[in-house]
Nucleic acid binder design. Sequence first.
DNA 1: GAAAACATGTAACCGGTTACATGATTCT
DNA 2: AGAATCATGTAACCGGTTACATGTTTTC
Lengths: 193, 193
Amino acid sequence: MSLRHALLSLLTVEPMTGYDLYKVFESSVGHVWHAPDSQIYPELKRMESEGLVTGEDIPWGQRGKKRQYTITEEGVAHFRGWISTPLEYARTRDPAHLKAAYLEWADPEAAREQMRGHIAHHQALLRQWQERIYELEHDTNPMLTKRLKITPPEKHEATIAYKHFTYEGLIARAEAEIRWATRGLELIDRLNS
Amino acid sequence: MSLRHALLSLLTVEPMTGYDLYKVFESSVGHVWHAPDSQIYPELKRMESEGLVTGEDIPWGQRGKKRQYTITEEGVAHFRGWISTPLEYARTRDPAHLKAAYLEWADPEAAREQMRGHIAHHQALLRQWQERIYELEHDTNPMLTKRLKITPPEKHEATIAYKHFTYEGLIARAEAEIRWATRGLELIDRLNS
DNA sequence: GAAAACATGTAACCGGTTACATGATTCT
DNA sequence: AGAATCATGTAACCGGTTACATGTTTTC
């Protein structure tokens, strides 16, 4: 149930429509949290009915309208409460490592293809996260820029530092996965020579 | 839908009942893949109806009976096919890192508690996986021992090596998470001094 | 005028979790 | 005799995915 917390985190910056939020999930934030529009719209309605946000229809063009959601005090408290609550970790369920444990069942080329896929996947993530770090260091992330504008200057350092720290962790993880799969390729070669 | 592949991987060793499989998931294998009994029993039925396994009622005590499942040739082919098929990676959804990105919303002690929880979680995983490595190196894992008995000797090395490789990857990941959260604690101290 | 982007939903399904329910066997 | 373990399920729910559906506005 972290979707609503991801939504709330964005709504602490400024009021947004479902489509605005969807676009953010599709771009930068989407590399930490993904959500399809079909999940966002109903969740916003539920959050409105629970008083975490208020919705307001605002005109859009001649006949159109869109619904803009504003976080409530209760929503802010809810978000802060979630951040402060110890995370419950889900039991392990890891298809990539489950497959890796039984690679002797695949022929060597299929096994190599698994490892190459793993490397490609994590290299793509790595690039995305390095791009986020670049944005942080050059203040080119629109959401963060807006956030800093409404944040007291003495909290700017922490606001940036925790996001930097987050992406560093994701980068370290991606690099570890790439190293692991690279060793996997070497192992496959060794076992099939 | 990897549950059925996890079940098939175990059934390649010997016929087992739902409860047998459940126990294995609760112990060693459960640290790579977890499944509750309420998911295992219906899945086995479905797999039987799809011809991946055959079920046989065998007597248990005076009046009791239990259903033992044997993997079919089709089941073996299905498992091998899965291992050889490139994995589709799910979009990122990572509550721990989502929270970390907004730790400025928590007070320092709650933020530290998050990091300590992350460290404790991954240290517990680390111990489990180191235990699995120990088992591999000393041949004290019952399932693996049985597996090797029905595996041609020339494939023993690969069978063990891929499992070793898998756990090494999980260990590297846990160590990276612990390092990350440890840096997180340092960051919290620095920002609040 | 057409295409792309903006805007918002519903419905069916799927894998997984939690709670509930029941009974037999084995061990102490 | 009682407790632990063995054994097998059902049902309600939950978060998430995929497919379907519709209409407006802006841009080229």
